[in-house]
Design a protein around this nucleic acid. Sequence first.
DNA 1: GTATACATGATAATGAGTATCGACATCGCA
DNA 2: TGCGATGTCGATACTCATTATCATGTATAC
Lengths: 145, 145
Amino acid sequence: MTGREPEASERRSTRQRTAITAVMTEVVDFRSARQIHAVLRERGHEIGLATVYRNLHDMEQRGEVDVLRAGGGDTAVYRRCERHEHHHHLVCRRCGRAVEVEGPVIESWAARVARDEGFSEVTHAMELFGTCGACTRAERGRPRP
Amino acid sequence: MTGREPEASERRSTRQRTAITAVMTEVVDFRSARQIHAVLRERGHEIGLATVYRNLHDMEQRGEVDVLRAGGGDTAVYRRCERHEHHHHLVCRRCGRAVEVEGPVIESWAARVARDEGFSEVTHAMELFGTCGACTRAERGRPRP
DNA sequence: GTATACATGATAATGAGTATCGACATCGCA
DNA sequence: TGCGATGTCGATACTCATTATCATGTATAC
Ligand SMILES: [Zn+2]
Ligand SMILES: [Zn+2]
Ligand SMILES: [Zn+2]
Ligand SMILES: [Zn+2]
């Protein structure tokens, strides 16, 4: 959002943190804390769920992962993003595939609207949801749920 | 979003529904289900919390109220909006005051991005958060000329 | 008025996320 | 290498919003 973090203090390197980072590096779609926890277990890492939450929250703070809280459910989903600058996402509500999108138009529009209404320190949250090409094709010829 | 609801079936008119609708008509800011429930109690209406949730969810479905799920907490907040057409909100994160805003630019941008990425049936969620004029002034401790 | 499908509400259940706190691991330093 | 201060972990209890249950109440059609 507002990329001016005060260079968060260093963290100790632990077996758990390393494993979580590794998973986040490989997984490409947004995943919930519990899903990530499950992947870790499958790989033989016996890591507590609380630790997963702690680390994800931590990685979020320092901008290492993006978090999505909208999108229907109440569950937050995380993913490591290519661009660390402010950006938005276009997420397939079917398979979870996510594309990072930039929206200069959004930024300036938000700023202008805010100014016009007399608001200051304006931030915005926005995500796009849709059905990706692959899923659209897969859907064809099949009855709707 | 996607204004093609199949004309939701009629609902029975009950004392509870009437009371909830009345409250939603008067309250101007976004309020949580519990807050609305509290207001109902204050007014002498002994209505179950579950019923409040049910009705709000219902009113949301038929577009009678808008719901905000982003904005920090995990609690959903509701409010009856002037315009029933698709729109967004600029919410004061200090006092909760909300302004309805329209964003034709956003709509076209979203559509274009979606097409470019091969996505279909795209919707979007977006809200603006800031500090309203009144709160900004109060923060400074002195009003602005 | 009667029947019946729908609405309500007290309460239990669910489920995400957080707080606790004793045990454990890391890292700077001797 | 050994030590200790301090950061981190993890089992589990907890909070709290929202949902499911299901017996009871009631709006509506006939
Ligand atoms: Zn991203
Ligand atoms: Zn897809
Ligand atoms: Zn304000
Ligand atoms: Zn829009």
